[in-house]
């Protein structure tokens, strides 16, 4: 939540500020390689994008990728499922829309406040909910998401109900952000920054602690890890980041409906994480790309999205439960040996 903003300044200078010692070169390459590659990819997309529509898709992928990375920290690393993340996305989107359109707040302030609010909500409900395991956690998070969805659908005076809500075009430093081409750079920067921070996080001691949460409680506790606190804070961070991108998405598209908060949206987010690879930051980006493009690629199947999603979920879980990126990486390693 707040570390998003704090992070901006040092993040851009950090790779330069810490020149890699010679012996660390290989390590730095391994660590920074994917970040640089992602940066290059982000820089190259506008050159090959043939139309405004392609740029629109790129922006959507970027937004989803950030959410998938944040959700992957919770689901893939810490092993805690959430079937309610669309609810947090909607808090960001509706929070930003309501605060700016109904109460005249500056949109960016509304965005920040609603992201923090989502983080605080997750923090408050996280302690009791995250004590639950497996199916019960899935059901509890699903219930939380559904309640958020129902509130948004029913409080018509505030949210416009099923008809949705409009947001006016965001202007930053005198620049009207009125096209996918402009939003692309903003979303691209957020994605790159999130990617870098997520990689750092999973490489740090806290990353190990998160991975230990996936195992038996007795193990993590015997290593001195405060299980509840660590689950709760990663849940809160993930919720805040998801809300932030929900808000960014709302400001970008200029129109939101409760559909963005519904159960299918939560499933899509989970699908991104599982398909790309649980416990892989890069996998989350790949998963976001595939799930976002899937309906476009399969336009003739647009009425059958639930069938297609369902089949993919089952096939992935049965044949490559670790997801695309880790499975591919494993195969490559095996091949090299």
């Amino acid at each position: 939540m707040t570390n998003m903003n704090e992070a901006v300044a040092p993040a851009q200078s950090a790779p330069i500020a810490t020149p890699p010692a010679l012996k660390l070169k290989a390590d730095s390459l391994r660590r920074l390689g994917p970040v640089v590659a992602l940066g290059l990819a982000i820089a190259l997309v506008p050159l090959i994008a043939g139309s405004a529509y392609h740029m629109h898709m790129a922006v959507m992928i970027g937004i989803h990728a950030v959410i998938a990375i944040s959700l992957n920290l919770l689901v893939g690393y810490a092993g805690q499922i959430s079937l309610g993340h669309a609810g947090f996305m909607a808090i960001g989107a509706y929070g930003t829309a309501i605060l700016s359109a109904r109460y005249g707040w500056p949109p960016l302030l509304g965005l920040g406040v609603s992201s923090i609010a989502a983080g605080l909500l997750a923090f408050a409900v996280g302690r009791p909910i995250l004590r639950l395991k497996g199916y019960y956690l899935a059901m509890a998070t699903l219930g939380l998401g559904m309640i958020i969805y129902l509130v948004i659908s029913n409080e018509v005076w505030l949210t416009g109900g099923p008809d949705g809500m409009s947001l006016s075009v965001l202007t930053v430093f005198g620049i009207e952000l009125d096209s996918a081409g402009k939003w692309y750079w903003i979303v691209g920067a957020i994605l790159l920054l999130t990617y870098w921070m997520a990689r750092n996080l999973v490489d740090a001691p806290i990353g190990r602690a998160l991975r230990a949460l996936e195992g038996p409680d007795a193990l993590a506790a015997s290593a001195g890890i405060d299980i509840s606190w660590n689950k709760v804070r990663i849940f809160a961070v993930s919720a805040a980041l998801t809300a932030l991108m929900g808000g960014v998405g709302a400001l970008y598209s200029g129109f939101i409906t409760p559909k963005s908060a519904d159960f299918m949206q939560s499933i899509e987010l989970i699908l991104m994480v599982i398909l790309g690879g649980m416990g892989s930051v890069f996998g989350a980006v790949v998963g976001a790309g595939i799930v976002t493009m899937l309906p476009q690629v399969l336009t003739s199947l647009e009425h059958y999205e639930s069938l297609v999603y369902g089949v993919i979920l089952i096939l992935v879980m049965v044949f490559m439960p670790k997801g695309l990126v880790p499975t591919t990486a494993h195969l490559i390693r095996k091949f090299r040996r």
Binding site: I81, L83, G134, Y135, A138, I267, I270, I274, Y304, E305, S306, L307, V308, Y309, G310, V311, I312, L313, I314, M317, V318, P321
Partner: peptide, 15 residues
Amino acid sequence: PLVVITLGAALVLRG
């Protein structure tokens, strides 16, 4: 995985 698989099955049935 079983949550995801049965969810997938739900989507398939619906589809």
